[in-house]
């Protein structure tokens, strides 16, 4: 048996497909993206080595608007952590305590996560439609005519209007993670606290929250990196407009690549995105560690 399982040839044979697929599609392209990012390249002709120029341009040129895009995605991150997570946490605490209809509520709240973001985007395009969209129709029927807007077409409201569907879709995701955490709190802990006369709010504050801290940390990381990487919904709803008011790094990257054929610049954005995601994950981990 041991001899059979130590045969080098077999080991290699079992691993080779995974290694080829993984390195070929995930690892090698990261290295290549890094390499391309040092060139001025239209994808077809000669590459010209320009060192860190792409990166410097991204951070200094207003015309490219990378800083604006990064700022927008950070606003989305802030909104996610500030609004989406508390809502998700509240739902998780209520459902995790065990109430009637727990499973049904959980399943309903999680459902939007599974629907294609394109479908959700198209649906919200209709909801936001200035003339016939259900939002403005509702406002008009409530006599709030003056509140109706071209939600996605105005610089002031577009970013907020893009955030709402994100919130709508992903609250359920964070809720599910946190719910799984709340459910993993040992029953004895809860019961002991109840015997001591602790109220629900006290149990949540002193027992459940500390217990699920690692999951809260994961949720925060996902909310922040997810906002940095956000693409689908924005692409469908506004594609970065109006006047770049909803531009995020990913939409800018796609623009660079496939509208302007600036492959070096596009690669630089991709590399920065990866670095930023890892950096934020590390920072968030550090913040949670220090609190302990």
């Amino acid at each position: 048996m041991k001899k059979l399982y130590s045969n080098k040839g077999h080991i290699l044979l079992f691993l080779i497909p995974a290694i080829i697929l993984f390195c070929g599609i995930l690892i090698a392209p990261i290295v290549m993206s890094g390499y391309y990012s040092f060139f001025d390249w239209d994808g077809l002709g000669e590459k010209t080595f320009i060192g860190f120029s792409n990166y410097i341009d991204l951070f200094t040129s207003n015309r490219i608007g990378f800083m604006k895009a990064l700022g927008n995605s950070l606003v989305l991150a802030l909104l996610s952590v500030g609004l989406q997570l508390p809502l998700a946490l509240g739902l998780a605490l209520v459902l995790g305590k065990g109430i009637k209809g727990e499973r049904i509520f959980l399943s309903i709240f999680f459902m939007p996560v599974l629907i294609s973001t394109v479908v959700i985007g198209q649906l919200w395009l209709k909801i936001y439609n200035p003339d016939y969209g259900i939002l403005n129709v509702l406002l008009r029927s409530l006599g709030l005519e003056s509140w109706t807007r071209m939600w996605l077409g105005l610089r002031e409201t577009a970013l907020g209007a893009v955030f709402i569907p994100t919130l709508w879709q992903y609250v359920g995701y964070h809720m599910l993670l946190l719910y799984a955490g709340v459910k993993s709190v040992p029953k004895e802990l809860r019961e002991a606290a109840m015997l001591d006369g602790a109220k629900d709010s006290q149990i949540n504050r002193y027992i459940v929250l500390p217990y699920i801290k690692p999951i809260i940390r994961i949720s925060v990381i996902f909310a922040v990196t997810g906002s940095l990487k956000s693409f689908d919904l924005i692409y469908v709803l506004t594609n970065g407009g109006p006047f770049h008011s909803t531009e995020v790094p990913s939409t800018l990257m796609i623009d660079m690549l496939f509208l302007r054929n600036r492959y070096g610049m596009g690669s630089a954005i991709a590399v920065l995105l990866i670095i930023l995601c890892f950096a934020f994950a590390l920072i968030i981990n550090r913040v949670f560690k220090e609190e302990e």
Partner: peptide
């Protein structure tokens, strides 16, 4: 993230 590999 899938962004990382899209260009190559």
């Amino acid at each position: 993230p899938i962004h990382a590999s899209i260009v190559p």
